[in-house]
Design a protein around this nucleic acid. Structure first.
Lengths: 253, 253
DNA sequence: CTGCTGTTTCCGTAATATGGATATTATTAT
DNA sequence: ATAATAATATCCATATTACGGAAACAGCAG
């Protein structure tokens, strides 16, 4: 065929998920022609693929003729979420109980991190991060902890594709600076988000070793509470939690 | 060709989603051979399909060699959720503000309902239903409201496949009884869950007209607060909320 | 009503996914 | 430890499957 294309996957399957991702990126609603503009698939092909999705309930067709994500995806998403989150939640809970700050778990998904589990702290002033939310890798504790596990080549690719916005003046803005920081993290064994994503918020994070997908956990809170003495307590606890999750993942029933 | 098979969808796509559903049904982890037992697809086919999913991040392969749902599904699920939920949330909020009880929206997904949006009441004693949760149709307010929109033939199929457990002594236990109840609902225009799912909890629900997927909204709370005078206020509000959601859905931007 | 843009259906073509047979790796029994 | 067993992964010839150009069919704007 024309393009030398992919590796060894089933094309229709790859395409159908590409379409679903595009719909998601577009905010949930797309027209056929918008899709054919974003991909370089011919219209009839896209139409046939979408029709299959609609028939099975993984996409909906609105009265506008637009296409949207279908309700059956909710269940699959919840399933994926639960599967990963269930293992982690007890450990995150332990962190919150002992440290009093919000704890999160996130995985690398393409070039961004997705939060897949959270146990909020009881403080009224606390981090607000919703499960399912995506964030950049270079300006979050979990993101940097994950990047530190990868080789510099891969890191470069990721941040190049995802971009490096600087939400605060403390954010890391260049790849060189990031690689340097990652070297520190590798030595230290954990990452610190020092008000890089939001002013006033500090976060300690650590990668989960040997996870099937690059994964990290974190605790975060306002700098007033999350200080040096907090770190002294937090780091060993993070380490044991990460190890426990790793064990659960790898010996999983 | 051998089998006269399906209608007009792309087979690999249908198969791949069937596999994902099976993994979800199995609680998140399956072996190849378990899958080949549940479907009647040959092993190499399943393997190839799963490999494609794994490569793209929609499935994970555990160190056990087992297959599980992948993290990228989380994002799609959240997207689908948000898309439907976003339209509904303002209306649900209105119901909670005016009525003081928890409000939910659910859709029919195969033979069960899935809750896709919720606005909790401020009462400390309130319904606990998580978004993403699945419930039977015959013992929930939203479920019965949805069934009442379908013809009896379809209803029979659904409850036959899903079963009719009776969590309380008030629950409907037979198809005949259910069809009778649905007739009442059709006349009345709304459904009542009279402690059928949980003792002490009453719920009023109404279908969202002309929804692309059968959809319903509800308000529910303890019978002490959710009484006859509550119904008088609630029913007109439910009706206008359902209509508003319907309009949003159908004129969607 | 007429001309347009975008969506859907048709259908011949061949590229695509298929699955039987085989090689490889884990797992259990000896 | 070593061998037998069962599961998973890879090959590759075949034809069924999905493909996409072209043409019909809506919706909309003028």
């Amino acid at each position: 065929m024309a393009e030398k294309a992919a590796g060894g996957g089933v094309q229709s399957v790859e395409r159908v998920f590409e379409l679903l991702e595009l719909i998601t990126d577009a905010g949930g609603e797309v027209t056929l022609s918008e899709l054919s503009a974003s991909t370089d698939l011919p219209l009839p092909t896209i139409h046939r693929l979408l029709r299959t999705l609609v028939m099975k309930g993984y996409a909906r067709q609105l009265p506008n003729r637009r296409y949207a994500l279908g309700p059956r995806l909710i269940r699959l998403g919840e399933g994926a979420n639960k599967q990963l989150g269930a293992l982690a939640r007890p450990q995150l809970k332990m962190l919150v109980d002992r440290l009093g700050e919000t704890s999160n778990m996130a995985v690398l998904d393409s070039d961004m991190v997705v939060y897949i589990a959270q146990v909020p702290s009881s403080h009224s002033m606390r981090m607000f991060t919703e499960v399912g939310r995506r964030a950049h890798t270079h300006d979050t504790g979990v993101g940097k902890a994950i990047l530190a596990q990868l080789d510099n080549e891969t890191v470069r690719n990721i941040v190049t594709r995802a971009g490096m916005p600087t939400p605060t003046e403390k954010s890391i803005g260049s790849v060189e600076q990031l690689l340097e920081e990652l070297e520190n993290i590798r030595e230290r064994g954990y990452s610190i988000d020092e008000q890089e994503q939001e002013l006033g918020v500090r976060c300690f994070a650590m990668a989960v070793p040997d996870a099937p997908t690059p994964t990290a956990i974190s605790v975060s809170g306002p700098i007033s509470r999350v200080d040096e003495s907090f770190a002294d307590k937090a780091v060993p606890l993070l380490r044991s939690a990460a190890q426990a999750i790793s064990d659960d993942l790898n010996l999983a029933s």
